[in-house]
């Protein structure tokens, strides 16, 4: 699943480690999500979206 988390994270000037700590997961998990190698739970998607100040659509919706 492709996503725009990395872009949003950089916009917010957060490192992977900082984002991971704010949403209570490991840095590895954030790295995997950004690379599209792991599909996070809805709970984690919402936590990431809230931390980055974006909506789920902004981060995860795939445009045609």
């Amino acid at each position: 699943m492709s996503n725009r988390i990395k872009m949003a994270r950089v916009e917010k000037s957060l490192t992977q480690e900082q984002l991971a700590s704010r949403v209570s997961v490991a840095r590895q998990t954030i790295g995997l999500i950004e690379k599209g190698k792991y599909n996070p739970s809805l709970k984690l998607c919402i936590a990431i979206a809230k931390t980055l100040g974006k909506t789920l659509d902004d981060l995860f919706w795939e445009d045609d």
Partner: peptide, 17 residues
């Protein structure tokens, strides 16, 4: 994840879990 006693024995991080 659903509440279950086994969750106490698993890692907190959802990917590892």
């Amino acid at each position: 994840m659903e509440k279950t006693w086994i969750a106490n024995l698993l890692p907190q991080d959802e990917y590892r879990e």
